[in-house]
Each structure stands twice: as structure tokens, then as C-alpha cells.
Write a protein that binds this DNA or RNA. Structure first.
Lengths: 205, 205
DNA sequence: CCTACCGATCGGTAGG
DNA sequence: CCTACCGATCGGTAGG
């Protein structure tokens, strides 16, 4: 229960901080143990709360998952748009997008997007639709670059299928990539470019 | 409790059938609702049993998951070896392997492999190691073909990374592929070949 | 394979 | 945000 005597412009700020802490803790736990494998008690104790207290910040466990996934997509959209705004040459844009996507997915410390990849099935139908709407915006950004590559004849498969395959290949790295195992994210981005794009022509127009 | 008066060569056969039914039902349910989202009661009632009876056939819910995953891998190994035994030309082998893998993953009716892709995290450490050992054999079969493609300069990325990416792209199709949505498994295999391999040379040696 | 059941856990809530 | 708690569910078991 909110204490009535406090000033309204102080408490909400603290609340927002605690909410953000819960979100980070939840993301970490969901990533490690899955949504169903994580209890509300786990999340609470990770930030020093008791079992019932997360429900002061979120109406349900599902709502926590939704907030985690939305935060991940928000970050992904933002950094992708930043890459695109640089207006690099086509090949470089592709490589930079790949590197950006891999960073989002593989950097320890960012658990939000992997949670989406692992646990989107745990969302109920309504929340899932909300997530899909955001994901569609992310896909659309990629699609423009894929389409340009296709027009430049650097990609032979149908653009839509190509996008799904390229993103799929990257998304699946969460299941096998281990940091500090001899392969860096940069090297992986380089390899992916080698895999999907033909050699650059020496003096190519 | 096994009835003592029955002949040992009759009952085990019926038991094996019931066990197989449980496995199919479990695979379907795990695929649809996830391991944690499926209860032993769900599995039991799917084959007309009561809640405690699956434990006559399996020692634990984990053991059911392990059996499902192992059955999936067994099928995958078998069909892959069958493709390889045909000794097709390199390009055709690749395409046939892709089609085979996609069929295993996407054909409705085969829920075993998708369960592995979704729910391998739910296996405890010991069982997970057993699964990884089988998966390594599967990967090794692919690796030989990838290596040959690399030597023939049809693939520019490092063979190991290429294998992980190609399998990842295929495995991720479980999250978006919808049968009867205008894209067949055959067409998808064709698109994947276009995406990963360069054009065949007209009179290429 | 069923009946009957247990112990534990879990998401969530009332009331302060 | 805590205390104290509930109702439901779940994996698993004893005994036949």
C-alpha cells in the first residue's frame, strides 16, 4: 500500500528504480532458468524483497515477462535505428547490423532479448500480439537492407526468406555461443558476412 | 505393480506399445505447451490413463523428456545417414540434407526434434550430457559435407561457424514456419541453397 | 495400471 | 513493501 504522507514526486521515482531492478533481475533469471523455472520468490529475493512484494510493482508474473521482453525490443529498435542513421555503404551496413544484433543477443548483461527468444511461448495470446507488433517493426528495418542487397544482386534468395534465415541463424547463436571461447562477437559478424554475401569486387562500382 | 501370473513374453510387448503411445503424446504436448507447461496428468489423460500411471512406464517426468529427445535424435541420425549413403554430387547432397533436416523439424507429426530445440534447458545436467553426445554425432555428419563444400570453395566462412549458422537458420524455422502458408518445405530448401551456395557454374568441372 | 493420497511449491492477496 | 496466508496444482508414491 502506498504511504499517503509522502510527497507524490519523491516516491514514484524510487518506485521506478525498484521496478527497474526487478526487471533486470527477472531478465537474468528468466534467461538462466526460463520463465516457468523462475519463481516470483526468486525474483523478489534477488533484489532483497519478500515473496509478495513484486506484486506491488507488477500485477502478475506474466506482466513481468511482458515488460522484460518489451524493454529488450525497445533497446533493439533503438540501436538498429542508430546504425541505419549512419548511412554506411550497403555491405558495411549489413555487417554493422549483424554485429549490432549479435551484441544485443550475446553480450552478457543484456538478458532482455534472449528472454524473448526463449520464452515468448509463455506469453498469453493478448500479450503475445503486443510483442509481435514490436517485433514486426524490428523486422521491417532489416527488410529494407535485405531488399537493397537483393537489388544489388548480393543476395539470391527471396528477400523475406533471406531475412528470416539470417535472423534465425543469429538468434540461434544464443544456444551455442560462449564468450571467451576463442570466438569474439566481431569475428562472428565477419564470418556471417562471409557466409551470406559474395566477395566484394575489387574495383566494383 | 507387474502382475506375476502373466507370461513374460506377452506383457512386455503390450507395455512397449503403451510406452510408445505415452512418448508420442508427450512429444506433442511438450511441443505445444513446453515441458514445464505440460503436466504428467496431461500426458496420462492423452492416452487414457490416470495421473499416477505414467510412472509405471517412466521413473520421472524428466525421463519422459529424455526419451522423447533421444527418439528425435535417433530418427534424425538415421535419415541423415540414409541421405549420405546415396553419394550424390556435393551440391545435391547439401540440398538433400537441408530438405531432410527441415522435414524432421517442420513436418507436423514429428514433434520429437522440436521438443529438443525448445526444451533442452529443462534437462538436468546428467541427461543433458547424454543428449549432447548424440547431437555431436549428428553435427559430425553435417560437418563432413560442410568441409567438402569449403574445399570446393562453395563456402567462404570457417566450416565450423558455417555449420552452426546453417543449422541455426534451419532450427529457428520452428518459430515461424506455418504449413499451408504458401511456402513448402521443398521451396524452403531451395531458397536455403540459394542463400548459402553460389550459382552453379554452367559447365563447371 | 488404478485409487487415494502426500508433501512441497507456487502465484497471488488482504491488511497494515 | 512486509506478514501471514490461501487455494490450487503438481510430481511422485504406496498398496493393491
Amino acid at each position: 500500500m502506498r504511504r499517503q504522507g509522502e510527497q507524490a514526486n519523491i516516491i514514484p521515482e524510487e518506485d521506478a528504480n525498484r521496478r527497474a531492478e526487478l526487471l533486470r533481475a527477472a531478465a537474468r533469471l528468466f534467461r538462466d532458468k526460463g520463465f516457468d523455472g523462475t519463481t516470483v520468490r526468486d525474483i523478489a529475493s534477488a533484489v532483497g524483497m519478500r515473496s509478495g512484494s513484486p506484486f506491488y510493482h507488477f500485477p502478475s508474473k506474466q506482466a513481468i515477462l511482458l515488460a522484460v521482453v518489451e524493454e529488450g525490443l525497445r533497446q533493439g529498435l533503438e540501436s538498429t535505428q542508430q546504425v541505419l542513421s549512419k548511412k554506411l555503404p550497403l555491405r558495411d551496413t549489413f555487417k554493422a547490423l549483424v554485429r549490432n544484433h549479435l551484441s544485443i543477443i550475446l553480450d552478457s548483461g543484456n538478458d532482455f532479448i534472449p528472454v524473448m527468444l526463449y520464452d515468448w511461448r509463455a506469453l498469453d495470446e493478448v500479450h503475445r500480439q503486443e510483442v509481435i507488433a514490436m517485433k514486426d517493426r524490428y523486422d521491417a528495418l532489416w527488410q529494407t537492407v535485405i531488399r537493397d542487397l537483393s537489388r544489388a544482386e548480393l543476395l539470391r534468395a527471396e528477400p523475406k526468406v533471406a531475412r528470416l534465415m539470417i535472423l534465425g541463424a543469429m538468434n540461434f547463436t544464443v544456444t551455442w555461443f560462449k564468450p571467451n571461447a576463442g570466438l569474439t562477437i566481431d569475428a562472428l559478424a565477419e564470418q556471417m558476412t562471409l557466409l551470406f554475401l559474395p566477395p566484394a569486387k575489387a574495383g566494383g562500382r
